[in-house]
Design a protein around this nucleic acid. Sequence first.
DNA 1: ATCACTTACGGGTGACGTAAAAATC
DNA 2: GATTTTTACGTCACCCGTAAGTGAT
Lengths: 278, 278
Amino acid sequence: MIEIYLLEQLCAFKEYGTLSEAAEHLNIAQPSVSRAMKKLEEQLGVSLFERQKNKIVLNQTGLLAAEYARRILDEEKNMEAQIKAFDRRLHTVNVGSIAPGPLMVLLPRLTALFADQVVSSDIETEEALLQKLNHNDYRFIILNRPLDDEKYICKEYMTEQLYISVNHFHPIATQKSVTFAEADGQNFIMYSQVGFWESIVKEQMPSSNFYKQENLEAVGEIAANSNLPSFSTDITQKILPSRRNGRINVPFSDPAAKATYYLIYKKENAQLCARLLA
Amino acid sequence: MIEIYLLEQLCAFKEYGTLSEAAEHLNIAQPSVSRAMKKLEEQLGVSLFERQKNKIVLNQTGLLAAEYARRILDEEKNMEAQIKAFDRRLHTVNVGSIAPGPLMVLLPRLTALFADQVVSSDIETEEALLQKLNHNDYRFIILNRPLDDEKYICKEYMTEQLYISVNHFHPIATQKSVTFAEADGQNFIMYSQVGFWESIVKEQMPSSNFYKQENLEAVGEIAANSNLPSFSTDITQKILPSRRNGRINVPFSDPAAKATYYLIYKKENAQLCARLLA
DNA sequence: ATCACTTACGGGTGACGTAAAAATC
DNA sequence: GATTTTTACGTCACCCGTAAGTGAT
């Protein structure tokens, strides 16, 4: 059989026009290319070049061969990419969520359950989540509404309650609960990766400003050292107890402040997801 | 890049199930296959096998890889075949004719004109000739009728007159000409590769028998030593003068006994054919 | 004991590099 | 003189084979 390196050199020659240029781009010496092209001709039993004393060009057969060579090289490159991608999908559990809260609960459980797999997660919009789920980019996704679609299985997973987080001197600190209307106009320190919560609070408190922080720890740090309110939820209070230091958490009483999360996945991943729900 | 020999060994393993069997069929030693598979895994950065102590099977990724490998190997085999076929077509002038007569004139001229090319020819039915001409299997064909088709160029090339060939004692030997009707009922020695002439004589002399000879020289030999008539034409009389030894050639006067031949070719071969017609 | 795979080691092919020559611009 | 191809020669990688070891049937 004709080895790939011969086809590579043939393609390089076609692309660059001279043996020297081809060799240059292949990072090998020029005589190697000369020899390889002869070997290719010999193996095919066919002449591929018109040779003058110090000039060499592809003949008709050579052009045809170069085309085929390109196709084969592309196919091999594709094979390599596909196999790597397949293997990666096989060894990673990629999860998408509409908000970070459920991931805080899920990811530790996932890494414990699938110790040999890499767990990775994204926070995306519902639209992007569904598209990628369909593409098998995610093993499952988490939405804040149930999904009625034959293609997917949908199971309620958990809820999350939004709180306002203030220091002791803040007027709201003494209240048992608060409404978005009451808090509207306050300026908040906010983590930037809050998913759908961002649109909720912006809609419900249109007069407020939200100072977004890329870094989750910075949110707690800045909030602890300022009078600005921030957000928390029943989940973050449990997972990140440090965030409660010196802060009073008051729940929003509006229905929009309570989210119910649903695990959504294809049937083929039922087994994996069942272990999560167990 | 991944070399072909690795893909070959992977495919062989998939096909035969064990490294030893694969090695056997590849005509190499078994440890070579073992090493090659490891190398393949290393180059892909992916595990392709489930290995137990003395057992090795393809995993999911391996199966996928083997499928891709097969496709690439097939593609390469195809490339090789196509290139060889292309080159061969480039270096051969293949010609098809409805009858052997025109080839007797043409082939010597062709071999003289294209000394560096291999000349080969077939005698086929009109239908087969047109199909293969369209397929570029022939540079040109010769039919016994003009063809009015935009795709092809058609030029009158030569004529051929059919004769009956008898010995001196045969009644027809004294005639200046003969009709098929008069000769009907006679039994003929006939060369088997006469193309369309066979259908002509069978139609025109339905009561005759035709004893076909595969070997052209046998026709002359047998005819010379028998009282049976045979066929000749103005062309064979010129090209094979030995066939006249002791034989009288009497022309058939019927119009069907005279053929006019036409050279038919695609425009792309105009140059080549022009040199024949010059 | 046989079979299947791996590991270790040695050998030879062949792919590559360097150097130099030939030819063209 | 610069560029391009070919030829010659030396080197090293690597692919293969043999032999030996391990574990399973």
